[in-house]
């Protein structure tokens, strides 16, 4: 095994071009577990810790450019207003120690369906800034996840940043685990209301081979909100609409049975989380404010 320590982004790209099998390591929260448990022996480890810009973020007019290694704890603390869904998701990541090291780049690189950030990114709308010595490109989040633990990155590409749409409405995130902290998702659900475009976006984690959106549910809800004039009236959403949304979200799930949960439970739980998070976000949109967001 070789340990590559590029001092700059350009050096990192060059190293990755020269050694496409090199495994990038930043927070180490996935890679080191695999090494410690002898599940993986990469030929090269490519340490990204020395590249300071990866741990920085910029808040633009419409988007936040989030460096791939910005730790979850920083997102929770500093980007709650701009990225409320991702901030909530960040709070559910493993433990404080892990949140101090891990960042969105790792979740995306590993592309596990159980990665906590994915549903929030899908719901908010995001683009992954991937780069190689050949050039830079932006991969829409909807096209990023290509299979179980597979993503759209080319072997010579590294994730530099994620461009996430700033919230234009309430967002929520919910995750089921069988412990009250430090737990991997049995399944997860993210929702973002986008009043500016009068759309709703969602993300489902751990309930399909990849993170997915519940598109039928989104379309149904957008249409129902539009037809009922809810965006303007800010009326309470009728229970039947919420139920239909929840059922469609559950229907979007394509889960499996495993040691963490059964497929049928996952489907059921996605539906419950969809209904609840819709309720919380809509109450928040209505201006009810207090008591809908949850505090911790």
């Amino acid at each position: 095994m070789d340990f590559l320590r590029p001092a700059s982004w350009e050096e990192a790209l060059a190293a990755k071009a020269e050694h496409p099998t090199a495994v990038p390591i930043a927070g180490g929260t996935d890679v080191m577990v695999e090494i410690n448990f002898d599940h993986r022996r990469p030929e090269y480890l490519l340490d990204l810790n020395r590249i300071g810009e990866l741990s920085q973020w910029e808040v633009g007019e419409d988007t936040v450019r989030l460096g791939a290694s910005v730790p979850y704890s920083q997102i929770m603390e500093h980007l709650r207003a701009e990225l409320p869904g991702l901030a909530l998701a960040s709070h559910t990541v493993a433990s404080p120690q892990i949140r101090n090291r891990g960042g969105v780049g790792g979740n995306l690189g590993t592309a596990s369906p159980a990665g906590d950030a994915h549903p929030a990114l899908l719901a908010a709308g995001a683009e992954v800034e991937a780069e190689s010595v050949r050039g830079s490109r932006r991969i829409p989040i909807d096209d990023f996840y290509t299979g179980v633990k597979r993503n759209a990155l080319a072997p010579d590409e590294l994730i530099r940043a994620v461009h996430i749409k700033k919230a234009d409405g309430p967002q929520q995130y919910s995750k089921v685990g069988t412990r009250n902290a430090m737990v991997i998702a049995v399944c997860a659900f993210g929702i973002a209301l986008h009043p500016e475009t009068r759309t709703v976006r969602t993300g489902i984690g751990s309930a399909a081979p990849t993170p997915i959106r519940a598109t039928a549910a989104e379309e149904f809800l957008a249409a129902a909100l539009d037809e009922g004039g809810f965006w303007d009236s800010r009326k309470i959403i009728t229970p039947s609409v919420a139920k239909q949304f929840a059922d469609l979200a559950a229907g979007a799930a394509n889960p499996i049975d495993d040691v963490r949960g059964t497929a049928s439970y996952r489907r059921h739980a996605v539906g419950i989380m969809a209904r609840r998070t819709l309720g919380w976000t809509w109450e928040s949109y209505r201006g009810a404010g207090r008591g809908t967001e949850g505090v911790a």
């Binding site: 320590r5 080191m32 577990v33 480890l45 340490d47 404080p96």
Partner: peptide, 15 residues
Amino acid sequence: GVPVCSCLVAAGQAE
């Protein structure tokens, strides 16, 4: 200054 799990920090990253 930041609490981390030292088992998940590659030795080289501590340089």
